[in-house]
Design a protein around this nucleic acid. Structure first.
Lengths: 221, 221
DNA sequence: ACCTGAACACCGTTCAAGT
DNA sequence: ACCTGAACACCGTTCAAGT
């Protein structure tokens, strides 16, 4: 009784929720998604070909949320705002950065985002090649910072919640080695990590790349 | 009969070989490592606490191979050479970039590598904070390019070897969407990807970051 | 001290069978 | 058209038992 019909949209919606409550990407499973939906796992295979297709749909659902900044702003502002928007969305959907790595960027919105980012740069005279390299670099930086953040949270969770003492050993080891071997830069590096948020760290990296990009602006008249 | 003793070193050696012949990081399993060693999986648990510890040891074995360039070279040369060395080692050990993401960088050599990279920059007067951000950015860029490379190879393999037709669909979709939606930058982006090797793409990204770093050099006298 | 075998609780995927 | 249940081939991890 009652319409038991479940559509792709509902599945993806729940999948993202299930992913968000997972401790790691490896923890995320279709069986858990199905359980949360109160349906059998095999049902998912009527709506989707396989797990990969579900991940693709999830990635697309996330990236669709990103808004593109107005084109009348200064190019550096546009670039910063665009990636800031991406960052915020990734942060809103925990583990979605991993999702992007695990999927092929075939969603139109995702391609349009890259297109826009490159256009922002070429519009001010930066050559196509440099703009391309910049987007790749910024994208990897963003994804890297994001994944680092979730991985750290995952490890932290594993250390506190579970009996997993040996992970704590590794974290402690970093501090000890940094001290005993007088790795002074590593020590300040650790301090920096605690001092600045992930978003701030990303912003600083982006600034560095932008400074490099400025060297590629055409010389005035 | 015959000494059946197997030590940690042999396990890690084989584990890296098994990882190298895996199509993806997910494909890599302890059961396969054990099978390749002609021992039972459970034996691994006598030598190591769990899979995580084996991954840590594998990551350490790989990173140890990286050589640090001479300190009398120009700072940009040192930086390029250092990361070029890392790139080559990662390339030599397929999927090792993923390994670095999955593990905590608690190995001394790995910390020393970061320490050296930061020192190269601070030695010429770049502030600690910028140097830190730069290392993080370069590291993520390198790992990103590397993972992209192996992921692509993985997808390519899946498409040709297996019946996996739907992955091919996604790849084709990118080209089609780029054309039908007039994503001109995306089209040249695809061309660039085929034109330059992964190492070249990384080198270009590194150059961009270095150009940004140069803006942080102290003004002469 | 070192290794095995069986067992446990998990996966993704398939497929005949139900409505 | 949509969903289930059972089965298959995989995982990592534990542990009593062997040498």
């Amino acid at each position: 009784m009652a319409t038991r019909k479940i559509d792709r949209e509902q599945i993806i919606e729940q999948a993202l929720k299930t992913l968000a409550t997972s401790n790691s990407f490896a923890d995320f499973s279709l069986r858990k998604v199905a359980a949360d939906l109160h349906i059998d796992v095999s049902t998912l295979y009527w709506h989707f070909k396989n797990k990969q297709e579900i991940l693709q749909a999830m990635a697309e659902a996330v990236i669709t949320q990103v808004t593109i900044p107005a084109t009348d702003l200064e190019w550096t502002t546009q670039l910063k705002q665009l990636f800031s928007n991406v960052f915020d969305i990734y942060e809103q959907y925990p583990l979605s950065a991993t999702l992007m790595i695990e999927t092929i960027p075939s969603a139109l919105v995702r391609l349009q985002l890259i297109e826009r980012a490159i256009a922002i740069m070429t519009d001010v005279g930066i050559d196509e090649q440099t703009a391309n390299v910049a987007v790749t670099s910024i994208d990897f930086l963003l994804t890297g910072v994001m994944i680092d953040l979730t991985t750290e949270a995952h490890f932290r969770q594993k250390i506190t919640a579970e009996k997993n003492q040996n992970l704590l050993t590794h974290v402690k080891k970093i501090h000890e080695l940094a001290q005993s071997h007088h790795l002074t830069h590593m020590q300040t590096s650790i301090k920096m990590r605690n001092q600045f948020s992930a978003k701030q760290q990303f912003a600083m990296g982006l600034d560095l790349i932008i400074e490099g990009l400025k060297q590629h602006l055409p010389t005035k008249n």
